[in-house]
Structure formats: structure tokens, C-alpha cells
Amino acid sequence: MSSRTKKFVIRPSSVMNSDINVTPLVDVVLVLLIIFMVVTPLLEKDIAVRVPDTEKVETTQEVPKDQLLVRVLTDGNLRLNTGEAEFPVTREDLVAKLKEQLDRRRREEDKVVFVVAEDGANYGGVVSILDVSKGAGASVLGMMTEAPEEDSKDGAAPAPPPAPAP
């Protein structure tokens, strides 16, 4: 044979692989999973609250005549103060009573509902009352607190409540 008749055959060095390599995909997914596991507890779930500036405020014991006030008691009962009278109301009737009172007010600035919750009241119940009040047409919701009772005039802390009897 002469050198001109030689045939050169080019062969691939390895066989073609048509399988998908999932190792990088698994690595990326695991890194994302770890990131989300670390970040999730740091996320805060809040209710937007506008806190007033601190100032000396005169204490008043009476509610203004036209102020709507919903009291959430420790036992879950509700009382509605319409300015004329304070009376017990059920959760089912609260929407209708608030809507009736708020519809009488023409200006949006006048559609204000204050909620007062006792210390032992259920937090979820208070939030649901805020939601119901907004749904009844209140444009502004307010939270009221009761001033702590002053047992002594000398600035000493009040005595702790008595322990329950066994």
C-alpha cells in the first residue's frame, strides 16, 4: 500500500452521554432551602401602627358624646358605647350597630371607632373586632388604654395583686 491510500478514521474519545446531570441542580436547591430556613424566622409579621408623639395629656373619665367605643371584655363579651349609652352587643350584631352609627356621619374624618380591650382579652378577638369595625365603614380605628390606677401619691409602684386563695 502506498501512503496515499491510507484512510484516517476519527473516533470520539468517549461515548456521548445523553443523561441530564442533576448534581448542580440539587446543590442550588439545597443552598436555597438553607437560605430560606435561615431567613424565614427573621421575617416580621406586623400590623401597621401609627404611634402618637409622647406628650402630657389631660386625663378624662368620660367619653365624648358622639364617640363610638367598643369594649372587649376578658370573658369575650362586647359592649358598645354610642355616646348616648353603653350596652352589651353580640359579635353578630356589632356590624349592624356600627354600620348604623357610622352611616349617620357624613364626613370620613368623623367615622372613627375606638377599641378598648381589657388586659385578659383574647388578642385574636381584639384583631377581629378591628377588622369588623373597618368592614362596617370606619375610616379610622383607634386603640385606647386605661390609665393605671395610682394607689400612692409618692411615686412608689403599686402593690402587686393578692394571690388567689387555694
Rank of each mutant, 00 (worst) to 15 (best):
L30H: 14
P161K: 06
Q67T: 07
K7R: 07
V26H: 05
V57D: 15
T90W: 00
E84M: 13
A159N: 10
T59K: 10
A48D: 06
P164Y: 06
K65L: 06
V70G: 02
V140Y: 07
R11M: 10
A165V: 11
G137H: 04
A165H: 12
T54K: 11
G124H: 06
T90G: 01
M1L: 15
D27A: 14
K7L: 10
S18T: 08
V126L: 14
A138T: 03
L25N: 13
K99H: 06
T145S: 14
A159M: 14
T5M: 11
L73S: 02
D75V: 02
R11S: 12
L78E: 00
R104I: 11
E149D: 05
P148W: 12
K65T: 07
N77W: 00
P12N: 07
R91A: 10
V95E: 00
V63M: 06
L78A: 01
A48E: 15
S3H: 09
S133P: 13
I20S: 15
G155T: 09
V51E: 05
V89F: 10
P41K: 06
D27Y: 08
P88R: 06
P52W: 04
M1P: 13
I47G: 01
L43G: 01
L43T: 03
L94V: 01
A156Q: 12
K99R: 15
V28A: 13
P52Y: 05
P24S: 12
K45P: 02
P158K: 07
A159E: 12
P161I: 04
K153H: 07
R79P: 02
E149L: 10
E92N: 04
L69S: 03
R106Y: 14
A136N: 00
V49N: 04
V51Y: 11
V89A: 03
V112D: 02
M1G: 12
G120I: 14
E92W: 00
A159C: 12
L32G: 04
D110S: 14
M143E: 06
T59R: 11
V15H: 10
P88W: 11
R104G: 09
S2I: 08
L98A: 05
T145M: 13
D131P: 02
L69K: 10
V126Y: 14
A136M: 01
L141Y: 01
E58F: 11
I10C: 08
D46P: 03
L25S: 13
V31W: 05
I35T: 15
F114A: 02
V26K: 10
S14D: 15
G135N: 11
K111Q: 05
D151P: 13
K99Q: 14
D93Y: 00
V127G: 02
I10T: 09
V140K: 12
S139H: 05
D154V: 07
E84W: 14
T82I: 07
P12K: 05
E146H: 06
D66M: 06
F8C: 07
S128Q: 12
E109D: 10
V115R: 00
F36M: 09
V9I: 09
K56A: 15
S2G: 14
V29H: 12
R71P: 01
F87H: 08
L42P: 03
E108M: 08
V116L: 07
P88L: 02
M1R: 05
